Simulated assay, not measured.
Amino acid sequence: MPEVIFNGPAGRLEGRFHPAKKRNAPIALVLHPHPQFGGTMNNQVVYQLYYMYAQRGFAVLRFNFRGVGRSQGAFDHGQGELSDAAAALDWAQTVHPDARSCWIAGFSFGAWIGMQLLMRRPEVEGFISVAPPANLFDFSFLAPCPSSGLIIHGDNDKVVPLKDSQTLVDKLKTQKGIVIDHQIMPGANHFFENDVDDLMDRCGSYLDRRLGITPQDYLPVSSS
């Protein structure tokens, strides 16, 4: 059932869902970049993150925020999109009720939404934030950040300068009980053009370390 439509706060939301083979497998939710700047669930980084989780046995959902693709509603400057993400996680948990945990991954605007969602959902045990827009949106809600995760950024990012990402990471690293892995990719820009493979290698290696698995444990996954 790769193509799914589920109810969101502003109408139907369009998504792609990869079910897990094991009943108690974890869930992953992948969130796309800014809707008003061409962000969709078919963004290459979003798609590759989705595939990365599926390979590792997760039940994975990516979806279009309100007003994108076949998703109903209109852009709501983050507040509505956070509600969409909460509804998406609710839907995935309904389909996969025995999931033992949850991960959230987001790219740019999606990273901002994802980090807000993990503040509200204690079942989220890890996150991957790709190029979080720390200069464009307020991240002060991360007080304290409840989960350990990876923040990854290109040092040639002209949209979100590295110093802004570093300020966010430095603030999070002062908190006890969580570990923030901050990785800086040399030469990569905000969109990771020509650097997606390296980005996925880093994200996948981080996830493998957290899960305690090796490539021998990966599952064959068809594209969807």
Rank of each mutant, 00 (worst) to 15 (best):
N135T: 00
R120E: 00
P122W: 03
F191P: 03
G38N: 13
Y218A: 04
F137H: 10
V95D: 02
M200N: 12
W103R: 05
D76T: 15
P146W: 10
L89K: 12
A87N: 02
I151G: 11
K22R: 09
Q116C: 06
N189H: 03
I184W: 01
L29D: 04
N194W: 05
Q116W: 04
F58T: 15
D195K: 15
G212A: 12
I178E: 06
K158T: 15
N156R: 08
W112A: 06
S165W: 04
A20R: 10
D84E: 09
A87V: 02
G8Q: 03
L82C: 04
D181Q: 10
N135I: 00
L219E: 09
F75H: 12
N189F: 02
N42G: 11
Q72C: 12
L29K: 12
G39Q: 00
L199W: 03
A111E: 00
L29E: 04
H32W: 07
L89D: 05
A54E: 11
R100Y: 00
M185K: 14
Y206D: 13
A143F: 00
I213D: 12
I152S: 14
Q36R: 07
V159G: 08
M1V: 13
P133K: 12
I5A: 10
F6H: 09
R210G: 08
R66G: 09
R16L: 14
I180T: 04
A20H: 05
V159P: 09
E81Y: 11
D170Y: 03
K176V: 10
M52W: 04
F58A: 15
L61D: 09
D76L: 14
N64D: 15
G57E: 09
G15I: 11
I104C: 04
I213L: 14
I180E: 00
D84M: 06
E3I: 08
G15A: 11
I151Y: 07
L172M: 01
K22G: 07
T167S: 11
F65M: 13
D155E: 08
Y50I: 01
E123T: 11
Q116E: 01
K22I: 07
M115T: 14
A28C: 11
